[in-house]
Computed example of a mutant assay.
Amino acid sequence: MTVSRPLNYGRHLVEDDDIQAVVSVLKGDLITQGPTVERFERAISDYVGAKHAIAVSSATAGLHIACIAAGLEPGKKGITSPLTFVASANAMRYCGAAVKLVDIDAETLNISFKELQLSLEDDPEISVVMPVHFAGLPADMQKIRKISGDRIVIEDASHALGARYECGSPVGCGKYSDMCVFSFHPVKPITTGEGGVVTTNDDDLAHKLRLFRTHGIERDPQYLDPDEAFEGDDRLPWYYEQQHLGFNYRLTDIQAALGLSQLAKLDRFIETRKNIARQYDEAFSALPFIKANQTSEAFRRRSGHHLYTVNIALEKIGLTRLEIVKKLYQFKIGTQIHYIPIYRQPYYKELSPFSVLDFPVTESYYQSCLSIPIFQDLQDQEVRHVIESLKKIISV
């Protein structure tokens, strides 16, 4: 079996109606700081069931301003998973806070509830808890919320738009966290090119997030100096105040138009990804040297299916991971490693005395993991091509 195109581990699907939605904004009066961003925010809020959605230029930007709104600063600490993209930990460091890491659970690949509980009990200085919903599978947020007490909980749900908690509620609804951050990078189930959003049910946090998104500038009359903002009863239309040190983290209306169009397809996209995962699960369950992750029926039902990861018994098949990656590339199959753990990054090695021995589950996963193609328009014959190619390469 051959394929006509390269199969990356993930890719966007932009259709004609998505293009027309963007063209419509491009032909309009406002391509940024216009009404389309607000429409997109309302649509996200409605989809996840949250009171507020604050669109930003990337999920990294969202995590950053969420950490600022949570009060992270020098002398404070945040805690997260080592199995994540560097942005999760970096957002805390941008605020000058210290970063703590705890090992993952072998079955879910999310932060270990038991290890997190021990760390929180051992270190009362931790003020922010940031669980990561790895590959789209939500962490056990009910337990995390309970043990976090009055600490601020920020969900890094960059992988998990459209996923659901064990109770059935949508990720991002605010039931178990103070803020939740999603990503719209092109490899995610829906895209705005680059972009992200923070959801919250807290009015005060939402106000802060909007300020930090736009240079720390306030325009709402109720928060302005009345002696400066008014002449008599007339509000000066040009007046604004920079009340905080914020950032230019805005999403454009061009991007929001694409996001709105894509959001209408999210359920279809996730169903397609679920079907791909089912095909992989069935095929790999019969192969002794490949272990697919997060395969329980309950996990598959709740996941956003951003990634499909496997672990390969490299020593038993006599191949290195690099050799497998190269062989798959010859079959036009692209792969990736998700992720090089945070504690292995030079910056964090210098910053903290992390040791691989402190993270045995993460390290075991990392040494043999591989992400294989899963995306919205991956066809059944292409899925079979990935399966058959892996069988050929790994057969012993």
Rank of each mutant, 00 (worst) to 15 (best):
L351A: 12
D267V: 08
Y348V: 00
Q367D: 11
F269W: 13
F269L: 00
I270L: 09
E231K: 09
S296A: 02
L258R: 10
T295N: 04
F359W: 14
A283D: 02
D253M: 07
F359D: 08
G232A: 00
L351S: 12
R300Q: 12
P353C: 07
E350H: 15
P221Y: 08
E271C: 01
L258D: 01
R301L: 03
E323Y: 13
D253T: 04
F289H: 15
F247V: 02
N293P: 03
R268W: 14
P360K: 09
Q336W: 14
L351T: 10
I342R: 04
H338P: 05
E271F: 09
Y249R: 01
D358T: 02
E323Q: 15
Q262M: 13
L236W: 12
L236F: 03
S364W: 15
E228V: 04
S355W: 14
L351C: 06
P341A: 01
L314H: 06
P288V: 08
I317R: 04
T295H: 02
R278M: 07
S352N: 11
S261R: 09
I276W: 05
T252N: 10
R278L: 08
A277N: 07
N293K: 12
Q279L: 03
L357D: 15
F359T: 06
Y280G: 06
R344G: 02
L357G: 15
F289R: 07
R321S: 01
K274D: 04
I312W: 09
E297F: 10
I333H: 06
W238H: 14
Y366L: 01
F289I: 11
A313M: 11
Q255W: 08
Y347K: 12
F284M: 10
V310W: 02
K274E: 03
G232P: 05
G304F: 07
A286W: 14
F354W: 15
L328S: 09
A277Q: 08
G232W: 11
K291R: 07
T272G: 04
E231Y: 15
A313S: 13
P353R: 12
G318N: 03
R301F: 10
G232E: 01
Q345Y: 15
R250F: 14
P341G: 07
Y366G: 08
V356S: 15
L245T: 10
R250I: 04
I290G: 01
H338G: 02
K274G: 00
G318D: 04
Y366V: 03
T252A: 06
L251Y: 11
Q262K: 06
K265F: 10
R300V: 03
L307W: 14
L245G: 05
L314Q: 05
